[in-house]
Design a protein around this nucleic acid. Sequence first.
DNA 1: TTTTGTTTTTAGATTTGTCTAAAATTTATT
DNA 2: AATAAATTTTAGACAAATCTAAAAACAAAA
Lengths: 230, 230
Amino acid sequence: MAPNIKYSVSKEDHLKAIFHLQQEQGMVTTNALAAALQTRPASVTDMLKKLKEQKLLNYERYKGFKLNNEGRKAAVQIIRKHRLWEYFLVKKLQFGWDEVHEIAEELEHVGSRKLIDRLDAFLGFPEADPHGDPIPDSQGRLPVRRQVSLSQLPLGKTVQVSGVASQTPEMLEVLQYNHIQLGTRLEIRKKFPFDDSLEVKVRNRPPVTLSAQVAKNVLVNDDEPQTERR
Amino acid sequence: MAPNIKYSVSKEDHLKAIFHLQQEQGMVTTNALAAALQTRPASVTDMLKKLKEQKLLNYERYKGFKLNNEGRKAAVQIIRKHRLWEYFLVKKLQFGWDEVHEIAEELEHVGSRKLIDRLDAFLGFPEADPHGDPIPDSQGRLPVRRQVSLSQLPLGKTVQVSGVASQTPEMLEVLQYNHIQLGTRLEIRKKFPFDDSLEVKVRNRPPVTLSAQVAKNVLVNDDEPQTERR
DNA sequence: TTTTGTTTTTAGATTTGTCTAAAATTTATT
DNA sequence: AATAAATTTTAGACAAATCTAAAAACAAAA
């Protein structure tokens, strides 16, 4: 039976942020982590020592760091909790997909393993959260999703939105305004080389123009459109 | 719109415990609170100063204390959260009523007011948690619990002690001796018509006999939480 | 290869919540 | 009322998580 390991809220926040950062770069730096957590480099160094002490990451001073197997497992569990709660908030409690992040930040730190597995079952074992990010299963397996930025696609293609790279409220506002959400099917109608903006069309709506900035952050399925689940 | 006031986990634990204790006695003592929270009297004193500072209770050294209006409101909101989450866990996630308390202890500290109001609606505005304790509504109105004397109940019923009518030291001594206190769950095993005494069983203890006099003064929840026991 | 600049770490302080041991105060007993 | 016992508070210490300011290590440029 899966154990019920619990770290402090701050440690969990650090583990999760390191995990996300090392998806991008292989190694994570003190400054990058401090920026991601809105804290100070000195505080990060302090925490790194504790996490190393607990054998959750490989770290040598001045040399950068990354999670080891143990740390990665812990981080994935937190991400699993975060995304399941987000799914719950949107699908069961009728929250908008742009309101759920902060609340899930709190719920993800609730410890019980049994709770999260029961929640998973209650929700019907969803595969992705409301932002299109894949939900790790109870074994910690994190499905890899082939996602491609909207800006990289050729003209005329019809694709389905499966994720948003930059999940700031400002970004989500733009999408909301243009009636684009997760699962929305888009056709790329025109590309403007001048500013790399592009015009897309959503079914039953007039075409809209998206800036290069926005398009870059809209992730779409490159292959099969995802089947809608209840 | 109801504000989103947040206190530390420890402060919330103290507020809740004080609230429960002052339901019984009007004034709460340092020792009683320390016992309830499994902490030390000195720690309680420390916290009392902070809560007084924040104007959540009336407290003068060596004189006992009780919540003021502000503190009571805060405590009721925490209790609302606790009981709604318990209801959710039992009714939606299929937990047994005896497993949910600890998990709800964590969930109750999640801050968002909107979350709890949405959860309330999702659950259909339930009036009592799985233990039969009433759930405060979103205005903080706490329904008065129906209390019934233990002597009036039918055989076989399992109930939770929610009050003691006669709080004489003699009465409390009897209860103490039989390991019965507030919140203790009892099953009524046998009734003796000869003297109206009855035999009750507390979990993990041998059965004990209570006189009619005693039984009359033990108040219990008159609900049926255990009908849907799994 | 020095010098300069950036990044990271250390040293020391602060805040919150807890503890133990001892002192102060209240309550109970003779 | 005086003494004993219990309760409550204070004093001082400690751990966790954070910070600022300064030092150390590394990287880049002259």
